[in-house]
Every structure is written in structure tokens, then in C-alpha cells.
Nucleic acid binder design. Structure first.
Lengths: 155, 155
DNA sequence: GTAAGTGCAAAGGATTTGCGAATCT
DNA sequence: AGATTCGCAAATCCTTTGCACTTAC
């Protein structure tokens, strides 16, 4: 299905379906909810006894993002990542641990109405929004607690 | 005031107040609502007949962010920027033009209650959140319209 | 057959790091 | 004086680009 969408869009642009493009799209489909960086894709490919150059990885994810099969996401750690765009799905947002970077998703619908408000207040046409929460995941909360009780070290 | 906060925190850490640190903090105070990258800070300094190396700019903004005088912000263009943290101020969010990158701020308070919800659903302790809207600014909307009416070119 | 896509290696750009010189206390 | 900070240049890391070779259509 996603594959057909890709093929159709490529045809429209006079571009070609290649094994590399198919594989990278598949990796995102398999990754499900994961957010992958170019480097992670590159390494996942190595495991599939198939070689794709880094340049192609970069070119391909850019293509997939252009077609809107992928969405670019940058957390405050500055690493560029991509995730599958779930068509017609409820918007999901990210909860990120500021200590270890663990990411959890959070579903929330009623932000769409906010887009209207933003539109009327700013004059921008709003196409998308991203909401991110930063804090400590349960694991890191415990780790901090332990540290505090066993020593007086700061930092 | 912000200056004193910086001095106090530095003392606590056995670190020193220097002209470089003072100037960079001042630039952020003067910039007001602007979001500045390391490079922008670096160039602003040149205009002040004072020389600060890029390394120091990077080290200083990291320090200021550590102390929580600055907040790191990364828009989807991947450029790392920083903004002043306004203590106790209403949360503001960003509306970003996906064509030209123009950023407008948008004030909104009632998202704090959401943090509670996230906390109970995920187990994370939430310290901060960031909401970003992506769309076309009025200028780019017009530019697109003009383009369409004068030619049939796509893209 | 021919335009589009790929791999490779080089180029770019942003950020970090090592180190001797300068500066604050 | 002694520790911290700075500037500089080199090193890293991530991403993009030029070009000859390969492949999809």
C-alpha cells in the first residue's frame, strides 16, 4: 500500500522505483513507531545483506519526506530523525527524557482546533503542528533518587 | 538582574564571570524575542568591536543553557538556536513558515494542565513543553498565489 | 538507448577539542 | 600563584555534492 503510493508518486515525477528506495521505505514500515536517523537506517541496511551508500540513504529519506511518506523530527538533542506519516491517524506527540533521550508517544486529538486559532491570530495557514514534552522518564527518576541517597556528589 | 543570577550560579560552581559571558548574555537580553544561533551571536559580537572566538561562543551558550538562562530550540530546518527563558512568563510557542522560515510567537497558557495528564499517563515527570505550528506566512501565501496566476509551472 | 539513480570519495558546514597563552581572584 | 577561561587551529561529525558507472523503463 505505502509501496504503491510511492510508485505512483514516482511515476508522476518521472522518477524510478529502485531496490534501495523500496528497502528504506520497508525499514520505516517495520520500525513502526520508532524515529530513525540517517545513520540508523544506514546500519539497519547493513544487517540485511544489501549495501546502500550513505549518500543514497540521505537522498532517499529526503525524497520520502518530500512525498510526505515521512515526517522530519528534530528533538532538542539536535539529531535529525524521521518517522512514518500515519495518514488520517490521530495526531501523536512526543514525550522525551531529557536525561537519556528515551521517547514515548502521546496521543491527543483536540489540538486541531488550536490550528484555527493560530491561523486567525497570525495570518499563517497552518498545515501541521508538533508538541513535545520534556522531562525525566521513570527509569532516570529512580536512578537520580538512588544516586542522591548513596552519595553527596553534585552533578 | 539576569546578570546577578548568572554571577550567583557561577560562584556556586567555582566558575568566573568574564566579559565574554556578560556580553553574550546581554546580546540575548537585547535580542528580546529573537532566536539566535551560535553563528548569529558570533557575528553580532563582531559589530561590538570586541572579539570572541567561536569556541567561546559555543562554550558560553552551552553554559547559559545549563544554568537555564537559555533554552535550546531546534526548528525542523535543523538549525540549533537558543532563546531567553522568561521566568514565570506565560508559555509562548512558535509558528514557523515552512517556505521562508519566518518565525512568529504565539502565547498560550492552558497547556500546563496537559502536563499533568502526560505525567499520569506516561510516568514521566514533565519539566517543559514546546509546541510548534508549521505553515505558510502571509508573505509566502501571496507569493504562491502570484506565481500560480502568472504561470502554470508546478513547483 | 537514455535519463535517472547509485556509490564513492571529496567537499562543506557546524560543533567540539587540545593546548599554550591570557585572565580572574 | 593557581585555577579557570580564552583563542586558535586541528579534529570530528553529519550532510551534501561531483562524477563516472550502473540500472530501470
Amino acid at each position: 500500500m505505502r509501496n504503491d503510493q510511492l510508485k505512483a508518486e514516482l511515476k508522476k515525477r518521472n522518477q524510478r522505483m529502485t531496490a534501495q528506495r523500496e528497502l528504506i521505505l520497508r525499514l520505516f514500515l517495520e520500525a513502526g513507531t520508532e524515529h530513525l536517523s540517517a545513520d540508523e537506517i544506514y546500519h539497519k541496511v547493513q544487517g540485511k545483506n544489501f549495501r546502500i551508500s550513505k549518500a543514497t540513504v540521505y537522498r532517499t529519506i529526503e525524497l520520502l519526506a518530500d512525498i510526505r511518506l515521512l515526517r522530519k523530527i528534530v528533538f532538542e538533542d539536535g539529531v535529525v530523525r524521521y518517522e512514518l506519516v500515519e495518514k488520517g491517524e490521530h495526531h501523536h506527540h512526543h514525550v522525551i527524557c531529557s536525561n537519556c533521550g528515551a521517547v514515548v508517544e502521546f496521543h491527543l486529538d483536540n489540538l486541531e482546533e488550536l490550528e484555527e486559532l493560530v491561523k486567525s491570530r497570525t495570518g499563517y495557514t497552518i498545515e501541521d503542528h508538533q508538541l513535545k514534552f520534556y522531562g525525566l522518564c521513570p527509569k532516570c527518576q529512580n536512578a537520580m533518587k538512588d544516586k542522591k541517597s548513596t552519595s553527596n556528589e553534585i552533578k
